[in-house]
């Protein structure tokens, strides 16, 4: 007896967004990255199109990070205090994109100056041909001071600047608008708040195809199910035709997973937890893959091995496409 597979027909689709600009487009990138465009839930190839696979970004810092796991420091070794070398190493490790997270202070413990931030960003742009996302240190005043300088110094590169939040988005959006960049918009795990921030940002005049939304997530075991369900609902709303949720999603599982106890702590844990490094990588990989399954378009990771595994899994999920047609 033939079985009819029930199919969902969606009226809406996710916007297609391109990060980075080629020399012919006013930038200096060797390649650009396009995300979004889905007309079905993640990897439901039989219901619609998944034209662009989710991509993996590697997070690097402008100097040796103070609070990263020794496992990560050990892995990246020599490049960890040089953003340019680090970016090149990240590209070699298979990153589709680079996320450069600026530090609040420089190597001397003084506040990072706009000039230093610009120098780091420019060094990274020279060292890699990949599109770049730049995050401020996460404090409104510092974010605005550094990102405005970075934005002006890299006009036309189509960087994504972050992180816009409801309390601080105007400056970042204004400078992105003036210098042809994108922004990432973060809200704390809530569909309506995500929508509202997208509305506020687009109200300022930034076209929706220059906004990535970051619905925030938790690591495996630390609220990922909540994050998963918010992302799933955002994606459902997008496919149902709600314009203000039709933006590709970026999430930071690397940041989340590496602050979980399971990846952070190597001693004094039950032996049954197994090898520390392996466990930490598993944590990051599983967190990222869960989010990819819930609709993430960009996952930001920290360990090269996790990158390899997540990319392999995405490839397999995308390969299912051929089984459908």
């Amino acid at each position: 007896m033939p079985v009819e597979v029930p199919k969902e027909k969606w009226p809406g689709s996710v916007r297609t967004i391109t990060l980075g600009a080629l020399p012919s487009e006013g930038g200096t990138r060797k390649r650009v990255v396009t995300v979004g465009g889905e007309t079905a839930m993640p990897f439901m190839h039989f219901e619609g199109e998944i034209p662009n696979p989710p991509v993996v970004a590697i997070e690097i810092k402008d100097r040796k990070p103070d609070d990263w796991s020794p496992l990560l420091l050990e892995t990246w070794k020599d490049v960890i205090d040089d953003p340019a070398q680090w970016a090149a190493a990240a590209e070699a490790a298979g990153a589709d994109l680079i996320v450069l997270a600026l530090s609040l202070t420089n190597r001397n413990g003084e506040p990072t100056s706009p000039d230093e931030a610009v120098a780091s960003v420019k060094a990274v742009l020279r060292a890699t041909g990949l599109p770049l996302i730049v995050f401020g240190p996460g404090q409104a005043e510092a974010d605005n001071a550094l990102l405005v300088a970075v934005s002006e110094a890299t006009k036309g590169e189509r960087l994504a600047l972050g992180i816009c939040e409801d309390k601080n988005y105007r400056t970042i959006v204004a400078t992105a608008m003036a210098n042809d960049h994108l922004v990432t918009a973060r809200t704390p795990m809530d569909v309506n708040l995500a929508k509202q921030l997208n509305i506020l940002i687009s109200d300022m005049g930034l076209p929706l195809d220059r906004i990535l939304m970051d619905p925030t997530t938790g690591a495996l075991g630390y609220g990922i199910e909540y994050g998963f369900s918010v992302m799933e609902r955002l994606r459902l709303a997008a496919l149902q035709g709600d314009k203000m949720t039709q933006l590709p999603m970026i999430v930071t599982p690397g940041f989340e997973a590496w602050k979980a106890k399971e990846s952070k702590v190597g001693e004094g844990v039950p032996a049954s937890w197994g090898d520390w490094l392996n466990r930490a990588i598993n944590w990051e990989t599983l967190t990222a893959l869960t989010l990819v399954e819930s609709g993430a378009d960009i996952v930001v990771l920290r360990h090269p091995e996790s990158v390899k595994r997540v990319k392999a899994a995405i490839e397999e999920l995308m390969a299912a496409k051929s089984l459908v047609s």
Partner: peptide, 12 residues
Amino acid sequence: LRSWGIQLVDGR
């Protein structure tokens, strides 16, 4: 213009 314009836009 850039310095002031951005402050007019972001409300400072």
